[in-house]
């Protein structure tokens, strides 16, 4: 195989995108604007990575996203399972959850700041608010989706409700939950950044806000690049674990 054939396609497309950015920002149509070139941004990013503040901010953002995400799972999974087990609970709560699900967390930032201030907790709260309803509904759908033929088989073998939940409802909910988790994990990151950018919560979002208002274009773009890399890592990590856990799919 040639050398070119051995380079993974994602590297090729990333390099192409950077090259396009470089050309557009140095000689292209946006060369007059304050948008920095790719080389400048990457250089700034490397410099930023040498500073402890960057790592602290990164840690704060990841912590807000991760804690919010974990809390959401802790609330949404049991709640979704309970709701999914009863047709009545499912139909009666679905409307309320769908309603809250579509409210973007950004909308409630002003109220949240009043209550909690521009703090770490506020960021966590926003993440939970942004994830918990969709995750709970997704889980409930998964629980309801358990195959009726399988459930009938289990009932005919006189297996109790606990066994049915453990061996039929939860595994079949797992693939629904996995989709929810994959979407939520990156959403958690986005919300954690927004909480800083708009609400002033600590982390990369606030750094972004500061560099933007300080007119530091290179730094702004460098942080955006960093967030992009982080997002890609998270979504790949989640997808990798999904394949390990839900091994009976994708075969």
């Amino acid at each position: 195989m040639s050398i070119a054939g051995r380079i993974p396609p994602w590297i090729v497309s990333m390099l192409l995108a950077l090259a396009f950015w470089q050309v557009a920002a140095s000689v292209g149509p946006i060369s007059d604007s304050s948008i920095p070139t790719a080389v400048d941004s990457v250089t700034t990013l490397v410099q930023l990575l040498g500073q402890s503040e960057t790592w602290i901010a990164l840690g704060q953002t990841v912590a807000i996203a991760a804690i919010g995400f974990a809390l959401s799972l802790l609330i949404a999974l049991p709640l979704g399972i309970l709701i999914g087990l009863s047709r009545f609970a499912f139909t009666s709560t679905k409307f309320v959850f769908d309603f809250f699900k579509v409210i973007p967390p950004i909308v409630i930032i002003p109220i949240t700041i009043l209550a909690l201030g521009p703090t770490f907790q506020m960021g966590v709260f926003l993440v939970v608010f942004g994830l918990v309803f969709a995750l709970a509904i997704q889980t409930a759908y998964g629980v309801r989706d358990a195959d009726p033929v399988l459930l009938d088989t289990m009932r005919a073998y006189r297996q109790g409700i606990v066994t049915q939940i453990r061996y039929a409802r939860l595994p079949s909910a797992a693939s629904f939950i996995a989709v929810g988790i994959r979407i939520s994990a990156t959403a958690a990151l986005v919300i954690a950044v927004v909480a800083g950018l708009i609400g002033g919560a600590p982390g990369l979002g606030r750094q972004l806000l500061l560099s933007q208002t300080g007119g530091l274009a290179d730094q702004t773009f460098a942080i955006v690049l960093l967030l992009g890399v982080l997002g890609v890592l998270v979504s790949h990590g989640i997808e990798w674990s999904r394949r390990k856990v839900i091994f009976w799919e994708d075969r």
Binding site: D147, V149, T153, A156, Y157, R158, P171, W248
Partner: peptide, 16 residues
């Protein structure tokens, strides 16, 4: 009682 149904793909658990 024991049962055997037509749809074996749906009555055996793929995760076990």
């Amino acid at each position: 009682l024991a049962v055997v149904l037509q749809d074996y793909t749906r009555s055996l658990m793929p995760w076990l």
